[in-house]
Simulated scan of single mutants.
Amino acid sequence: MTYCVGMMLDRGLVFMSDTRTNAGVDNISTFPKMSIWEQPGECLITLLSSGNLATTQAVVSLLDERTKSPDDRTPTILGVPSMFQAARLVADTLKEVIDEHAQAGMQADSAFHATMILGGQIAGGPPRLFLIYPEGNFIEACGDTPFFQIGETKYGRPILVRAYNSAMTFEAAMKLLAVSFDSTVKANLSVGAPFDYHLYEEGSLVTGRTGRIEGHDPYFQSLSQGWSDALKAALDSLPDFDLS
């Protein structure tokens, strides 16, 4: 399973993804689920992926390979004129990979499906954020839906819904996402650290602050314990149910 979040702020875009792909008593694997394409001064595009690992890696590999050997008939992720066209390209590539699996006889319902979050900025346009479905269609974030989640979304969603504010700083957004990821990890073994992040500053058109938060990171451990203590204190402060 996976947990990834893409979020729009007044200041830019924030992305975070876990790295766990298999979970079990003796089977835990780690792979990055975040990809970044950059052409300084012209475009910056970030992709988060959830779903079948073979599918998501094939999509990223195809997008990479086509930037190295551009074809006038086939647009590349670094050659599209707008983020909308970038979303169409990724959606078409995802559908292409899934269809190839099906034609090869690998028809296990949704076993080869994947869902993706695409965000970034291309010169001349604003930062934009899209949620791309395995069927090849997509939707765009807006004021009413300022963030997208993919993977194991339900445990980390409540804090995002309650605390999100488009005016928050990158530092505050990182704290919010760390709590959201901690809540998910506590509830589901299939999501786990380390967590990759990317903070994109609107108008910069270059890769922003990136990094990885390990499970044993002192800040993350402190935040996890502090959030647990705060929840318990808040519950204790509420009146008990009156059985009389």
Rank of each mutant, 00 (worst) to 15 (best):
A123V: 09
L160E: 08
L78A: 00
Q225L: 11
G215C: 12
L231Y: 01
T74K: 09
A54C: 02
S50R: 06
L177D: 12
S228C: 03
L189A: 08
S61E: 13
H101L: 04
G119E: 10
A91Y: 01
G24P: 00
G208K: 05
A193L: 11
E201T: 15
R162K: 15
T76Q: 04
D99K: 12
I159P: 00
G215E: 04
A58H: 03
Q85V: 07
E65P: 00
Y219K: 12
G208D: 04
L235G: 01
V25Q: 09
T67D: 09
V90E: 05
I159R: 07
F220P: 07
K68N: 13
L243A: 07
P32G: 04
L9F: 03
P158D: 11
F31S: 04
G208V: 05
T21E: 02
V90M: 09
V179L: 12
G105A: 13
V80D: 10
L94P: 01
N165M: 03
R209T: 15
A193Y: 15
G105D: 12
Q103W: 07
A58P: 00
L223I: 15
S244F: 12
S222K: 13
V161W: 01
G203I: 09
K186H: 11
V185K: 11
V59N: 03
P239D: 01
I139D: 00
A23R: 07
R73H: 08
E202C: 10
